[in-house]
Design a protein around this nucleic acid. Structure first.
Lengths: 112, 112
DNA sequence: TGCCGAATTGCAGAATTCTTCAATTCGCGG
DNA sequence: CCGCGAATTGAAGAATTCTGCAATTCGGCA
C-alpha cells in the first residue's frame, strides 16, 4: 500500500467536509435521487453541485446512473449513514462537554 | 441557529480531513498522551503538530491539560472512536463495491 | 436530423488551508 | 532571578479548494 492508510482516511473525511456535500449525503440517505431534486433542495448553482457530486463520486461514497431523462445519485453503501450519525453524535457531545470533560481529566492527573 | 447545522457538520468532518490529525486521533484512542509522545510517533515538525492540535482543539474533538513538565491531549469524547471506526468501514466497503452496487442499482431502474 | 433540457466539464479568480521559520510563552530546576 | 526544554503562536509563501461563468456533452423526442 503505497498511500498510507491514514492518508486515505483523511481523504475520506475531507470529502465530507463541505456543506453542500453533507446535504447531498443526507438527502441520499432516504434513497436514490435525481440531480434535479438535489438542485431544487440545495440552492446552489448547477455547475457547483456537479462539482461537489464529482468529488463524492471520486471518493466513492456515492454512485450515479442514468434513469430516463435524468441522472440519479445514490449512496454507494449504507455505512455512510453511520458516519453521518456518528458525526451528529459527536457534534452533540462536543457542544455539551466544553469544559466538563476537561475538568474531570485534570482532576485525575498528578498535576494539581 | 444562525449557522446551519450542515455547516457545523462539514466543519467537524473537515477537521478530520488531514493525515496528521487522523493519526493523532488514532493514537489518542488508547488514552491521553503527552505531546512529546505524539511527536515521537508522527514524524512532523513540532510547530506543525501544534498547529494540527490547535485545529482539533478548536473544533472540540480533543482537550489538553498540563501534567507536570508536559502537555497532555485526550479525546473529548469516546464517540470520536466511533467516527473513526465508521470511516474505516466505509473505506473498506468503498474499495470492495466499486461497480458491484452500481450494477445492482441500475438493474432495478426502469432505465435499461 | 435538429432541438431542448439536464448535467457535466474547463477554467480563472477568490478564498482557505498547509507548512515552515522565527519568536514567544510557560513551568520547572538551578 | 535566569536558563532550559516543551509547546505554542505569528506570519508569509506555497499549495489546494471553492465558486461561478461559458462552453460542451448526452439522451430523448418531434
Amino acid at each position: 500500500m503505497s498511500v498510507p492508510l491514514y492518508q486515505a482516511k483523511a481523504e475520506m473525511f475531507r470529502t465530507l467536509g463541505h456543506p453542500v456535500r453533507i446535504r447531498v449525503l443526507e438527502l441520499l440517505q432516504a434513497g436514490p435521487r435525481p440531480v434535479r431534486d438535489l438542485l431544487a433542495e440545495i440552492d446552489v448553482e448547477p455547475s457547483n453541485l456537479s462539482q461537489q457530486l464529482a468529488v463524492l463520486r471520486r471518493t466513492g461514497v456515492v454512485v450515479s446512473f442514468r434513469d430516463g431523462g435524468s441522472v440519479m445519485y445514490a449512496l454507494s453503501t449504507p455505512d455512510v449513514a453511520d458516519l453521518l450519525a456518528a458525526g451528529r453524535r459527536i457534534l452533540g457531545a462536543v457542544l455539551t462537554d466544553r469544559d466538563g470533560l476537561l475538568a474531570e481529566l485534570r482532576a485525575h492527573s498528578p498535576a494539581d
